[in-house]
């Protein structure tokens, strides 16, 4: 039993471990190479005032992800070409935020300066901390334009293209956005559509509960145990009737033991029979007045353990 319990615990712990590992993996896997500038003549400058190529990474998750410990490379045969520093506050990417690396081949200039540069036709890749799991990659097309960034049309989206505006550390989609509420009001200015849809959903949710509990109540009212007992009792009754029938059939086959038992019962009944008891039972209330002098606790010499 203990062995089974231990095995069960081991399985649960392993599953939790796998889950945690998966969660961690999912966080790192939520990072995306989001935008690159290959030829920087007059675009953004780095912290040294130099126009350098850059790579923007986007955290598509809704939790902070630490990019420290992962690897950036421009050569898939060398996945661990540039190890991103661990334990730096700057490598913590907030939810739905960005980090920009300068691909200037000058790694001595800081942790955001890579040891390679960008060129058209190269594949840029981001590898997980194990150096084997590919998190994301992009092959820079030969059609890239000088000072125009190549990126995902929507942050974290699947489609790539030359972007209208360079947006390091900002949303790639620079079109004017309409708030969901404003869009809803534009489509449904009176609010009647909202009322109809929302009331339908509220009714649906509560009707679902209602139906569930209606039938659950019926199922619960079926007492399976009682039914089984009733069935067993019916079977037993049928069995007894069968036995009685058999006994009636073999009425003449009385054994000696049975005759002796019947005789003994009759004898006891005849000799012990009486109508009135000769003992009088009297119940009196006994009251004892409490006195501390008679209490045993005052006479204790030994302290209780």
């Amino acid at each position: 039993m203990r062995l089974i319990r231990n095995k069960f615990l081991a399985v649960v712990i392993s599953l939790i471990g796998l889950g945690v590992g998966q969660l961690y993996g999912q966080s790192a896997l939520d990072l995306r190479i989001n935008e690159v500038l290959v030829y920087n003549d007059s675009n953004y400058v780095d912290d040294f005032g130099v126009h350098s190529p850059w790579i923007e990474i986007f955290n598509s998750a809704y939790n902070t992800v630490d990019i420290g410990g992962l690897y950036l490379t421009d050569d898939l045969s060398q996945p661990m070409k540039y190890p991103i520093f661990k334990g730096q506050p700057i490598t913590q990417i907030p939810p739905r935020s960005y980090i920009v690396f300068w691909a200037d081949d000058k790694p001595t200039r800081g942790i955001l300066h890579l040891n390679f540069t960008l060129e058209a036709g190269k594949t840029i890749a981001l590898f997980d901390a194990n150096g084997r799991t590919l998190v994301d990659s992009v092959t820079i097309p030969h059609s890239v334009i000088r000072d125009v960034t190549y990126g995902r049309l929507v942050d974290g989206g699947a489609e790539w293209g030359n972007l209208d505006k360079s947006t390091p550390n900002a949303d790639n989609d620079t079109s004017v956005k309409v708030l969901a509420g404003d869009e809803f009001a534009r489509m449904d200015p009176t609010g009647l559509g909202m009322a109809a849809i929302a009331m339908t959903v509220v009714f649906l949710a509560l009707a679902l509960l209602s139906v569930f509990f209606k039938y659950m109540g019926k199922v619960m009212s079926i007492d399976i145990k009682k039914q089984l007992e009733a069935r067993a009792a019916a079977k037993a009754r049928a069995g007894v009737q069968a036995v009685v029938g058999e006994e009636e059939a073999s009425e003449l086959e009385l054994t000696g033991e049975l005759n002796a038992a019947i005789a003994m019962t009759l004898y006891l009944y005849a000799t012990e029979l009486h109508d009135a008891e000769n003992t009088v039972l009297t119940i009196n209330r006994v009251s004892r007045t409490y006195s501390p002098w008679s209490s045993k606790i005052y006479g204790l010499r030994k302290f209780p353990n």
């Binding site: 609010g191 909202m194 009322a195 929302a198 009331m199 509220v202 009714f203 949710a205 509560l206 009707a207 509960l209 209602s210 139906v211 569930f212 509990f213 209606k214 109540g217």
Partner: peptide
């Protein structure tokens, strides 16, 4: 359980 849906009807006030 049929009383549950009465709770839904009163949400008309919200909308």
């Amino acid at each position: 359980p049929k009383l549950i849906v009465v709770g839904a009807a009163a949400q008309l006030g919200i909308f």
